[in-house]
């Protein structure tokens, strides 16, 4: 019997590398301060990329996601990435 792969939902967070200029983050920081939220010490703006991956295990799904980050999803010069969330509950639209 063939092992049925499960669908894993992973979220990849891509953020501008610390220390590097983050113009959108800076603009939002200034806007928050202008609104009186002076307690905000830093703002960085990145992307959240939701992936649904069919894999034999969560470990395998994560390994593939990490490879995707290195290859395409994050720029190694300017960005860091983190795979922050995982669950293998049936994904939306998965009607198998």
């Amino acid at each position: 019997m063939k092992l049925q792969p499960a669908r894993y939902r992973l979220e990849v967070r891509v953020t501008p590398r610390a220390g590097l200029l983050d113009p959108p983050g800076k603009a939002i920081y200034q806007a928050l301060h202008a609104l009186g939220y002076v307690e905000v010490a830093d703002v960085r703006v990145g992307k959240a990329i939701a992936l649904e991956i069919d894999a034999a295990s969560e470990e395998a799904a994560r390994a593939r996601a990490e490879e995707m980050c290195r290859k395409l999803l994050a720029n190694p010069v300017t960005e860091d990435f983190e795979i922050v969330h995982s669950d293998n509950a049936p994904a939306a639209g998965d009607h198998r």
Binding site: L21, P23, P24, K26, N75, V77, T78
Partner: peptide
């Protein structure tokens, strides 16, 4: 060319946005 690794570095958003 930068993304393809033909040149070093990267181009990010203009600081003026």
């Amino acid at each position: 060319a930068c993304e393809a690794g033909l040149l070093p570095g990267a181009l990010i958003r203009n600081r003026t946005l």
